[in-house]
């Protein structure tokens, strides 16, 4: 049946018509205004139906009072600090949404020099076996990539990262090595999954986690679900539970903390986040994310900071936002950005 044959009750049932009456967005307004012009004889039916739709309400509309609104908000946040009120806390096992995924974790390693060290112990381990063919995947600045290994493990690689893995895994273990930052969703099976990062070995015991090494020589392992064990060269060992992050300075102490999952894992879902960051930190993130080179003109005010959450945004739009809120000036030429007025 076409709209011109519609009676009032047909219009009352029609989603596209109701949408126009309720929302009046561009698409519907365009269509219905044209349609009414074309069918002036149906005008009364259309408007009567629209009138009825607009007239139907809750008999009593009760709005939330400001007091209740604020009180509820506080109660929700307080319930977290006060676990007694918490509706049953989850065990780490129940975190497995996908049962096959043994571990999800993120590793970030920024010390490139120690790269060679990582492979030495592995080579001795695999000594008796046939030579293993290694594959290296390099992701340059401005790019991100997802690698699926032969066992089904998925690895999300951030910009400027390098992953090495054997073409086929041995019968006894699955070992890969990462430089930079990557998020792992490890397929659960009998062979242990081991990630080498800057002299550390991360044993997956059933988990999802993020690993990141930074230029100041730190490695950070953030665990989403499951369990991982981390060993360093000196024989230290530490276990991580979900929502825990381990930060290790080379040959330094292990520091366990919590983490803000959006801040740490957001990159995987294309979130670029600045949290009261100074200019140099913002510069580095932008260079990494978009694969550009940023040149600074003039002095940088050390007190300049920037906050923002961007989802899948163009570089130009971020810079525009920054120039509005913090007064910087910029020009973009190909892969080069010049920023001035950082005050």
């Amino acid at each position: 049946m076409k709209y011109e044959d519609f009676d009032i009750d047909d219009f009352l049932k029609d989603e596209f018509f109701i949408h126009w009456v309720k929302n009046r967005d561009e698409d519907t307004v365009h269509f219905w205004e044209k349609w009414i012009q074309q069918h002036p004889e149906r005008k009364h039916i259309v408007f009567t139906a629209a009138d009825i739709i607009k007239s139907i309400h809750y008999k009593e509309k009760i709005s939330i009072s400001d007091r209740l609104y604020l009180e509820t908000f506080e109660n929700i946040l307080q319930a977290e600090n006060n676990p007694v009120n918490k509706p049953h806390k989850k065990t780490w096992w129940s975190i497995f949404q996908i049962r096959n995924v043994a571990a999800v974790f993120l590793i970030t390693v920024l010390m490139w020099l120690s790269w060679d060290m990582i492979f030495v112990p592995q080579q001795t381990e695999e000594l008796n076996l046939q030579p293993i063919e290694w594959v290296t995947k390099i992701v340059p600045g401005g790019k991100k990539s997802i690698v699926t290994l032969s066992d089904g493990t998925k690895i999300f690689m951030n910009s400027n990262s390098e992953l090495s893995y054997p073409k086929t895994f041995s019968d006894s273990s699955r070992t890969v090595a990462i430089k930079g930052e990557a998020f792992f969703e490890v397929q659960k099976e009998d062979r242990p999954f081991i990630v080498s990062s800057k002299g550390l070995k991360i044993n997956v015991l059933g988990t999802s986690f993020n690993v990141k090494d930074s230029e100041d020589g730190k490695v950070a392992v953030a665990l989403m679900s499951g369990k991982v064990r981390i060993n360093d060269n000196s024989g230290n060992q530490v276990n991580l539970l979900p929502n825990e992050m381990l930060v290790i300075k080379e040959n330094g102490p292990f520091i366990k903390t919590g983490f803000d999952s959006l801040e740490v894992l957001g990159w995987k879902n294309k979130y670029l986040i600045f949290k009261k960051e100074n200019f140099y930190s913002v510069k580095k993130k932008l260079e990494n994310w978009y694969g550009v080179e940023i040149e600074i003109k003039g002095a940088v005010n050390p007190r300049w900071t920037y906050s923002g959450v961007y989802h899948d945004e163009m570089l130009e739009n971020i810079l525009k936002g920054m120039s509005h809120t913090s007064g910087i000036s910029y020009t973009i030429k190909n892969k080069k950005v010049i920023i001035s007025n950082i005050e």
Partner: peptide
């Protein structure tokens, strides 16, 4: 990208202006 090993905190929401939240999300 430097990592800030900070505890997750709700104050994160305070660093961005209210109108921005509605605009962004």
């Amino acid at each position: 990208m430097a990592i800030n090993p900070k505890k997750p905190t709700t104050s994160a929401s305070l660093s961005i202006k209210n109108s921005d939240i509605l605009r962004i999300y």
